[in-house]
Simulated assay, not measured.
Amino acid sequence: MPTYIYLHGFASGPKSAKAVFFQRKFETLGIPLLVPDLNEPDFSQLSLTRNIAAVDRLFPPLPQPVVLIGSSFGGLTAAWVAQERLQVKQLILLAPAFEFAQAWLPRLGDQFFQWQTQGYLEVEHYAYGQSRPLNYGFVEDLQAYDEGQLTRPVPTLIFHGEADEVIPVSASQRYGQSRAWVELQVLREDHGLTENCEDIWQTLQIKNILGRP
Rank of each mutant, 00 (worst) to 15 (best):
M1D: 07
I5Q: 07
H8P: 05
G9I: 04
G9W: 01
F10Q: 03
K15Q: 14
S16K: 12
F22N: 03
T28E: 15
T28M: 14
T28G: 13
G30W: 13
P36V: 05
E40I: 00
P41Y: 03
P41M: 05
S44V: 00
Q45I: 05
Q45C: 03
Q45R: 11
L46R: 00
T49C: 07
I52G: 08
A53K: 08
V55G: 01
R57D: 12
L58V: 08
L58D: 02
P61I: 04
P65R: 00
S71N: 10
S72L: 11
F73Y: 14
G74C: 09
G75I: 15
L76V: 10
L76M: 12
T77I: 02
A79E: 12
Q83N: 13
L86C: 02
V88I: 10
V88D: 05
K89P: 04
Q90L: 11
L93T: 08
A95Y: 15
P96W: 13
P96M: 14
F98D: 02
F100A: 14
A101T: 01
L108R: 06
L108T: 04
L108N: 04
G109H: 03
F113I: 11
F113S: 08
Q114L: 12
Q114K: 05
Q114H: 05
T117P: 00
Q118R: 06
Q118L: 11
V123P: 03
H125L: 09
H125M: 06
Y128T: 10
Q130A: 13
Q130P: 04
Q130V: 09
S131P: 11
L142I: 01
L142P: 00
L142E: 04
Y145W: 13
E147L: 09
G148P: 04
Q149A: 12
R152W: 10
P153C: 08
P153G: 03
V154E: 04
V154W: 07
L157K: 08
I158D: 13
E162C: 09
E162H: 05
E162D: 12
E165I: 11
E165G: 10
I167Q: 01
V169H: 02
V169D: 02
R174I: 00
Y175P: 00
Y175K: 00
G176E: 08
S178I: 10
R179C: 02
V182S: 08
V186Q: 09
R188Q: 14
G192P: 10
L193W: 13
T194H: 15
E198Q: 14
I200W: 11
I206A: 13
I206N: 07
P213I: 10
